[in-house]
Design a protein around this nucleic acid. Structure first.
Lengths: 249, 249
DNA sequence: AGAAACGTTGACGCTGCGACAAGGTCAAGC
DNA sequence: GCTTGACCTTGTCGCAGCGTCAACGTTTCT
């Protein structure tokens, strides 16, 4: 038999057969005078075993192991392990499909999929074109994806703020500070009102520590022009102070 | 932010971030004087979107597509497609686990896993150390894995032959011909008796056509020494003749 | 005799990074 | 000032299991 024949007989490609030779799964057969590989039935039987094993889902390394010690013992071991692996994969797929089902259900925000907690929050926030509000949403989305699952409670706690009737006005006042200087007189009162608007529940989920020390706090500040940054910094500092008082109370 | 910071913030590795630059998913940010990449919050937001999308299971190409037209339309499309793909994978895994369950149930023959049909046949065949019988089993295993599912009916049809009380004696007579010449007088009668022992059901599942013309027939013959080969060839020819008569009857 | 259909070796491609190598940069401690 | 350690830089190989050229020789059909 030549390579194409044995491949067709067993039901694999010639390329696969050569690959098996290359990785040492199937011994190279003798050659004919013209250099073609000359296969015997024994090769075909071996190749067929390889095919059955790979079809079941064994890796080539595992196939090699199983063929090596031809006691049937190892095979059962490998198969059990494989089944456990498949079971794990099946669970993973099911979990991912669960996530997908939730995402397909939701109205799909334009800036990508969000966690259900954040989606619920944004769903209750008023529609607006305020740049500051947009920036805020980006920051929340960033926190959402930041990995640590700490966002969910925060988003729930922010719900009253989103529904606060005066929140839009506050955003607009922040917008007005875009080109202002750091000594603008509107900074202090706006910061104070923002702090006052933050629900008490939020304080409970803010971890203690200097906010600007964590990468996240510094990074958020860098995203604002000077006057707005001054406002946000004041708010962060004030909230941190209240968190500290919470800790000592 | 430097690369390690943005990576930690979003929850990926620095290597992954560089990879996203390399494949054009994330634009290269400006550099600091020392050559370090200087990331902004906007980069972090984008990176976070990428992370969410890849976590869901999108390939980097799909992520690129979704980010490209930032209408939410494409996203839903891709997600639906992804879900369909996952559903397909889930079915495949379940099917493979079914197969595995059957295999783990069975006693696991030493020469690898067999189809249930062949396993049943061998289970009913008598135990023997005859080389000819062993060869026969190898050939059946080869046919089993040959891809075309035509083996199952044949194995079922061979069941009476396996249980035939005289089958062992026939195998032993074939063994005795191992070193004999092609003109040995025992060839003709053995071939005749073998043909007579083949159940009629087998004829029904043999495809019409010259057996030595198909790769399989030629290959089987090559596996025998001369005298045995003569026997097997006679049997094959005789069976083919009976198949032809079946076709015209 | 030419074309089609085989065979040969060799090398790159695919996915999503991980893991080196061989450096340069920066902050802290001695 | 010097070392140490933790960062950063670019570039390359590796992974699984072959598919897919490339560039060429062989066999076979017409």
């Amino acid at each position: 038999m030549r390579i194409g024949e044995i491949a067709a007989l067993v039901g694999v490609t010639s390329r696969a057969v050569r690959h098996y030779h290359h990785v040492g799964l199937l011994p190279e057969p003798a050659r004919q005078a013209n250099g073609y590989r000359a296969y015997t039935v024994r090769d075909a039987v071996l190749l067929a075993r390889i095919r059955r094993l790979t079809e079941i889902g064994l890796s080539l390394d595992e196939v090699r192991d199983v063929l090596a010690d031809d006691a049937g013992r190892e095979l059962g071991e490998v198969l059990a392990e494989l089944d456990a692996d498949l079971a794990r994969q099946e669970r993973e797929i099911q979990e991912r499909r669960q996530v997908l089902a939730v995402l397909l259900e939701a109205p799909l925000a334009s800036d990508g999929p969000l966690s259900p907690a954040l989606a619920a929050l944004l769903d209750h926030a008023p529609a607006t074109t305020s740049p500051a509000a947009a920036k805020d949403r980006e920051h929340l989305a960033l926190l959402d994806a930041a990995g640590d699952g700490a966002g969910a409670e925060l988003f729930a706690a922010l719900r009253p703020l989103a529904e606060h009737p005066g929140v839009l006005a506050l955003y607009e006042r922040l917008d007005e500070l875009e080109g202002a200087g750091v000594d603008d007189p509107r900074i202090a009162p706006l910061a104070a009102e923002l702090v006052a608007a933050v629900p008490d529940e939020v304080l409970a989920v803010i971890p203690e520590g200097e906010p600007s020390a964590t990468g996240f706090g510094r990074v958020l500040l860098d995203d604002y022009p000077p006057a707005q940054r001054a406002v946000v910094r004041r708010v962060m500092e004030e909230l941190a102070e209240r968190v500290r008082r919470r800790g000592t109370a």
